[in-house]
Design a protein around this nucleic acid. Structure first.
Lengths: 240, 240
DNA sequence: TGGACGGTTCGGTGAGGAGCGAACGGTCCG
DNA sequence: CGGACCGTTCGCTCCTCACCGAACCGTCCA
């Protein structure tokens, strides 16, 4: 009788059932911490209104907060929260990319390469997984797993795949891309790869959006290691 | 600017942000079609109220309907809808099983073995995946995929794993179990296995709940093929 | 051709909650 | 210390929406 009625489900869903709160969570999908004021401006509401929303989101376990001086920093509570937001944002079929006017620049940058909480998405993320699969580092023929060669490649980057464990996030997870309709790599491995790319300076964050940019060094490294044509990938959308 | 604001997210979330609608979707997680009246009684609202809710859920793409004579049959629109409901129902950590009074019988049956839309869950579902992994039919060490031996075993059951394709559901997906905190098999493979088990008479649905029961023939078959101790699995919860 | 039944449509009621402005309490800086 | 600044609390308005009863329309059965 406990979880059989819809009460608990409704409480969680209600957190995201408001346009303002959903927009806040969407902005936080970049994985970083924003201040309350930034979120209020972004959502287009008064600070007082934002406070109320943020309180509810924190109380509901969707957001985590860190108070520092006169600032209140907010971020998504964890990978589960991020996945929930991402899942909801891509239901049912997120309206065909609609290449109307090449997007408003910002949107074009997002479709090219962005972070999805803590892993890479967009054409870059999808291209990465496709390249790994094409090079025999990843195998999707009977599920989704790294091959022995893929594990060695990860090790070369200093990444060790954690063993699957009860309460932990899955080491490997495929995440259906929001703009492309193909999967990119998520889970612990996706997060580790993204962190490694950022640390190595292959990829860097742009303004204050989720968009990221591949550096010249990153282009060379990805071409070397995966045969990935980054400029061709991020410039124009493929015919499909 | 289109999907960047939270409007679309909020619209979908609002569908499940009501206790009654969430309860309806939860009931439909058994994968079958219910009539409008059954759903109204289950949710404890007047038929008029149910009609309004069902209209909204259908319009929102979460439910599909079939009108037949004076009946209106409703089911979840598809695997994506089911996954959304399941994801929401298990956030953040679905309250420890709380073995208070061995559950109300109905609940005990659910934790032992149930369907999760179109695949098997509960201790049976979790045990199945664990057994497949233990027997070398499935490999979770570097992701989640069937081994060659596993593919052969599936073929022996008349199941061929579909190739991953753009718009389709993933062939293999791990679904974190609601009661257990370990994964069970979902995706096209999970659905195929569940359908096969039902067709073979190894597993049968019970009353009108999501709970299922393993038949004697099923116990023998699962013990033979996977070394699975079904009675031990479904009788008492493990110490954990 | 009645009557039972499943489902819908239509007003009306009530509660929840999203929004704001204004006043207040902190922190940082000149 | 006084002023700018970030965030919160409070009181209020307004609108959405969940719910019901009653009347209605269709299907199925005797």
């Amino acid at each position: 009788m406990t979880a059989m009625d819809g009460r608990e489900i409704a409480e969680v869903a209600a957190l995201l059932a408001d346009r303002t709160r959903a927009g806040i969570c969407l902005a936080l999908l970049d994985g970083r911490a924003w201040t309350a004021g930034e979120l209020a401006r972004l959502a287009g509401v008064a600070p007082a209104t934002a406070t109320e929303h943020l309180n509810r989101l924190v109380a509901g376990g969707l957001l985590a907060e860190v108070r520092q001086g006169r600032h209140r920093y907010l971020r998504l509570a964890g990978p589960r929260a991020a996945q929930l937001v991402e899942d909801l944002s891509s239901y049912p079929a997120p309206a065909p990319p609609a290449p109307s006017l090449r997007g408003s620049g910002a949107r074009a940058a997002l479709t090219a390469a962005r972070t999805c909480y803590d892993h890479l998405a967009g054409r870059l993320g999808v291209g990465l997984l496709a390249a790994m699969t094409g090079r025999g580092l990843f195998d999707q023929s009977a599920g989704a797993a790294f091959t022995p060669a893929g594990l060695a490649w990860l090790a070369g980057l200093g990444i060790e795949l954690p063993a699957p464990e009860a309460g932990r996030r899955p080491p490997v997870r495929l995440c259906l891309d929001w703009t492309e309709r193909r999967p990119h790599l998520a889970g612990a491995a996706g997060a580790a790869l993204c962190a490694r790319f950022l640390a190595a300076g292959w990829v860097e964050r742009t303004t204050r959006q989720r968009a990221v940019r591949v550096t010249p060094a990153g282009e060379r490294a990805l071409a070397d290691q995966l045969g990935l044509d980054v400029p061709g990938l991020t410039a124009l959308p493929p015919t499909g």
